[in-house]
Nucleic acid binder design. Structure first.
Length: 399
RNA sequence: GUGGAUGUAGCUCAGCUGGUUAGAGCGCCGCUCUGUGGAAGCGGAGGUCGCGGGUUCAAAUCUCGUCAUCCACCCCA
C-alpha cells in the first residue's frame, strides 16, 4: 500500500486518534498472535470467523496459535490479566492494528486488513452505548466520510434472548424443509441469522415473531435511542444481527456504498464476555472499523495544501553550497526536496515540477559567489534573488 | 469456502481460428535548448506475454494447475 492509499490510511488514523483523545479513550497495543483458544472462547464457536477463517498454526513449543481475526478478545484478555477490575474497572481503550481472516478477497475485503477499534469497559449505562456510537460518528466526520447510514438494534440479554430464540426456532421449524442449506444449518445454531439471509430472510420478515425485550432491555434500548436522537440519524433494523457470539443488547452498523462489503464499522454491547472469559462481571460496549473500507467510502482524499521547495544546482562547483541551502531550509521547518545534481538545469526543473513544489531554489555560480539564492515561484514564474539568511523568511511570507 | 471475469511495456489496452525479430497511445530517458519546469518536433530505452506443467515441429494464443485483481455468493469490518 503506497501513495494516496497509504496517505488516506494515515489520515484516518490521525483523525481517529484526535477524536479518541477528545473522548478520553486511551491506546491499548494488543498482540498480533494469540492462543487460538482465546478466539474460540470469546469470538465464539458458532461464528464463521472461528469455524473457517482463522490463520492458525502450531509453534515450536507445540502451542496452537492464531493470527488475530479481531481485536476485542485481546482487549478483554488485557483487561482481565492486568487486573483492571480491581484497580480501575472503568476503562476506555482504542486499538489500531492489522487483523487476519482467511476469506476469498475482493474489493474492501482483504485477508490482512486494518481495524481501528474502541471498547468502553465497566459502564453498563446507555450513555456508554451512545458515546461509543457518537465517537464513531465524530471520527467519520473528522475524516470526511459523509455518505453512510447507521443501523441499530437490540438483541436483548441472557434473560430475554433465549426466549426469543426458542420462539424463532419453533416458528421456523415448520418450514424447515423449504429453507436454503445454510439456513437449515443456522436454524439450531443461530436462528436470528435466518432472518438476515438473502435467500430466505424476506419470507419471514412479516410473520416471524418479533423480539420481545425484557423491561430492563427495553428501557436500556429506549434510553440509547433518546440519547442519540437529534445527534445522529439512525434506522432501527430488527434484522440487524451481528456475526459474533458475544453481543448483547445494543448492536449497530455503519454502512456505506452499494457493494457487498458495505459495513464500514460495526459493534455493540457485550456484557457477559469478560465474565465468560474468567474475569469479573464487567459490562462493555465497543466497535471496530474497517480502515480500508472507510477509506474506500471517503473516495479521494482532499489534496493537502503544502508548500514545498525544490533545490537545484547549476554546476558541480555549486553542489555543496546548494546542498547546504537545502539542509538549512529543512532546519527552518520548510519541506524541501532536491539534490538531483547529476542532471542539468532543465532536468532538475522538470523534477521540481513533478514533485508539485511551489518554489524552486536555484543555485548557480553567481549565487554561490554572492551568498544568495534565486527563489522562483513555480505557479507564477516570478523569481527573485535573496540573501541566504532572508530566504526562509521570504518563503514563509509568501505562504 | 463456492461460481464467474480478467492477468501482454511504468499506466491504459490491441494482438482473429497457434506460425518469422510481440505492437499502439500515454508516461519515462535523451536531443533540438550547456542559467530555468509545464508546449512542440525528433530519437531512444523498456516486455520471464502473472507463475509452473502439458499438447505441438512451433504456444501470448490450446490445455491443466497455481497465484493475483475484480464481481456475485458466503461472511464481515
Amino acid at each position: 500500500i503506497f501513495g494516496p492509499e497509504a496517505a488516506a490510511l494515515t489520515a484516518l488514523e490521525a483523525a481517529a486518534r484526535k477524536v479518541f483523545k477528545l473522548y478520553g479513550v486511551k491506546e491499548l497495543r494488543i498482540p498480533t498472535v494469540e492462543l487460538k483458544e482465546l478466539f474460540i472462547k470469546s469470538t465464539g464457536t458458532t461464528t464463521d470467523i472461528v469455524q473457517k477463517e482463522m490463520y492458525s498454526f502450531e509453534d515450536a513449543g507445540h502451542r496452537l496459535l492464531a493470527l488475530r481475526p479481531e481485536g476485542t478478545p485481546g482487549v478483554a484478555r488485557a483487561y482481565i490479566e492486568n487486573n483492571f477490575t480491581q484497580a480501575a474497572p472503568v476503562q476506555q481503550f482504542f486499538y489500531i492494528g492489522n487483523m487476519f481472516r482467511a476469506e476469498r478477497p475482493q474489493a474492501g475485503r482483504y485477508r490482512e486488513f486494518e481495524q481501528i477499534g474502541a471498547e468502553f469497559l465497566g459502564n453498563p449505562a446507555p450513555a456508554a452505548d451512545a458515546q461509543a456510537i457518537l465517537l464513531l460518528k465524530d471520527i467519520m466526520q473528522a475524516f470526511g466520510v459523509k455518505n453512510y447510514s447507521v443501523k441499530i438494534n437490540s438483541l436483548g440479554c441472557e434473560k430475554c434472548r433465549p426466549l426469543y430464540r426458542q420462539a424463532l426456532i419453533d416458528y421456523l421449524s415448520s418450514s424447515k424443509d423449504t429453507l436454503c442449506e445454510t439456513c437449515q444449518d443456522r436454524l439450531e445454531r443461530n436462528p436470528l441469522r435466518v432472518l438476515d439471509c438473502k435467500i430466505d430472510g424476506h419470507r419471514f420478515a412479516e410473520g416471524a415473531p418479533k423480539m420481545k425485550l425484557c423491561p430492563e432491555c427495553e428501557e436500556h434500548f429506549n434510553e440509547v435511542k433518546r440519547l442519540l436522537d437529534g445527534k445522529i440519524p439512525y434506522i432501527v433494523d430488527t434484522s440487524l444481527v451481528r456475526g459474533l457470539d458475544y453481543y448483547t443488547r445494543t448492536v449497530f452498523e455503519f454502512q456505506a456504498g452499494d457493494k457487498s462489503q458495505n459495513a464500514i464499522a460495526a459493534g455493540g454491547r457485550y456484557d457477559s464476555l469478560i465474565k465468560s472469559m474468567g474475569g469479573a462481571d464487567i459490562p462493555a460496549v465497543g466497535w471496530a472499523m474497517g480502515a480500508e473500507r472507510t477509506c474506500l467510502a471517503l473516495g479521494s482524499l482532499p489534496a493537502e495544501e503544502e508548500v514545498k521547495v525544490y533545490v537545484v544546482s547549476l554546476e558541480k562547483s555549486c553542489n555543496e553550497y546548494a546542498f547546504n541551502v537545502m539542509q538549512n531550509l529543512r532546519a527552518d521547518g520548510i519541506i524541501t526536496e532536491g539534490g538531483l545534481f547529476e542532471k542539468n538545469l532543465k532536468g532538475q526543473m522538470k523534477q521540481a515540477d513533478r514533485t508539485k513544489a511551489r518554489f524552486a531554489v536555484i543555485i548557480g555560480g553567481e549565487e554561490t559567489a554572492r551568498g544568495s539564492a534565486k527563489l522562483k515561484d513555480l505557479t507564477t514564474g516570478e523569481q527573485k534573488d535573496y540573501p541566504l539568511d532572508a530566504l526562509a523568511g521570504a518563503i514563509k511570507n509568501i505562504k
